[in-house]
């Protein structure tokens, strides 16, 4: 094939290149009628594969797929970097793109505040809140601790060597730990050990490597009632799956209430029609039998909310989290 000179061979190559360029250059905008997704929807998860947020996202994917509620597939994408910073910055960069949505944790509030990110909840479009995950205080069954009084005594007896396992630092579990320490005058007596995920935290309690945790019910369930014992719940009312466990409110600490919101957000500036379509989609999902079953089995609070009330909820949560962080001295005005 050496007979052909390079210059001659280049002609078809250049033709191909040029024609491709022209095709690309021709592309402009597309008119949007009554909105429906026209390409796969990127379902961004602000945590790694296999974590709590990831599980919820994949469950949602399952429900939407099975019921054929969307003409395009939901594609879960994990952007776990920087405690959610990577995911939120990604959404900021996708401003106006209606084919990207984000499923959140509470780092949705804490990370932008702590890391001074150019993005927070106000730069995104709130779409829907589906559930509020609950928290319990757990100890190892071998510890013999039966109630909150035992717990406080045991912590004090360890003289500052009590350990509390949790996921990540300056995130939900540490906030809850701090709330506990403040309420029971245990400041400086509990050492917080950060782990990678809720399942690992629970395992370390079950194996006796840490003294206590504030796991979600779903994380504690594999070891309950054999190895892990819940002492009290951080909910306003008792959790149906753990009827025998008192709430902190009953124990005289009504301020010890904390939830993890599971909600959906879209980038800022998406078309109104698109927002309406998503709201409708997640409204169907939140009221589906599958979602009801899952939430009751996993002791989550099913909590459907959208529109203006959701915006207000986010604003309230944002203030609450900033206050918590300030209380820990991690954030200044």
């Amino acid at each position: 094939m050496k007979s052909l000179k390079p210059s001659k061979r280049a002609i078809p190559f250049l033709t191909l290149a040029l024609s491709l360029l022209i095709v690309v250059a021709l592309g402009t905008t597309q008119a949007l009628a009554a909105w429906k997704p026209t390409r796969p929807i990127e379902f961004v998860i602000m945590a790694g594969k296999g974590g709590g947020a990831d599980r919820i996202a994949r469950l949602m994917q399952k429900i939407v797929t099975q019921n054929k509620w969307s003409p395009q597939p939901l594609v879960p994408i994990n952007k776990k970097g920087g405690s959610g910073a990577e995911a939120m910055l990604y959404l900021l960069s996708k401003k106006g793109n209606p084919h990207v949505i984000l499923v959140t944790l509470n780092s949705f509030f804490t990370t932008p505040a702590l890391r001074k990110l150019p993005v927070n909840y106000t730069k995104l479009t709130p779409v829907y809140r589906l559930a509020m995950d609950t928290f319990l205080l757990w100890v190892n069954t071998k510890s013999g601790i039966k109630n909150m009084d035992d717990f406080v005594k045991a912590v004090k007896a360890k003289k500052g060597k009590w350990t509390m396992g949790g996921t990540g630092k300056m995130q939900e579990d540490q906030l809850v730990t701090n709330m506990l320490m403040q309420a029971y005058g245990l400041k400086g007596m509990i050492t917080y050990v950060p782990f990678r995920g809720g399942g690992t935290v629970a395992k370390n309690l079950a194996g006796g490597h840490v003294d206590s945790t504030v796991n979600n019910p779903s994380e504690g369930l594999p070891h309950y009632p054999g190895k892990m014992k819940p002492i009290a719940a951080l909910t306003p009312e008792r959790i149906p799956a753990f009827k025998e466990v008192p709430t902190f409110k009953e124990l005289g600490q009504p301020q010890l209430v904390y939830f993890m919101q599971r909600s959906i957000n879209a980038p800022g500036g998406i078309p109104k029609d698109a927002l309406a379509w998503y709201t409708d989609l997640f409204n169907k999902l939140c009221n589906s039998k599958e979602w009801k079953d899952y939430t009751s089995k996993k002791a989550l609070n099913r909590a459907c909310l959208s529109g203006a009330p959701l915006g207000k909820f986010f604003a309230d949560e944002d203030v609450k989290h900033k206050k918590l962080l300030m209380g820990m001295g991690l954030l200044k005005n």
Binding site: V23, V24, G27, T28, Q30, T38, R39
Partner: peptide, 8 residues
């Protein structure tokens, strides 16, 4: 990239 519209 910019060729996205070609695929949908």
């Amino acid at each position: 990239g910019y060729a996205e519209f070609l695929f949908y």
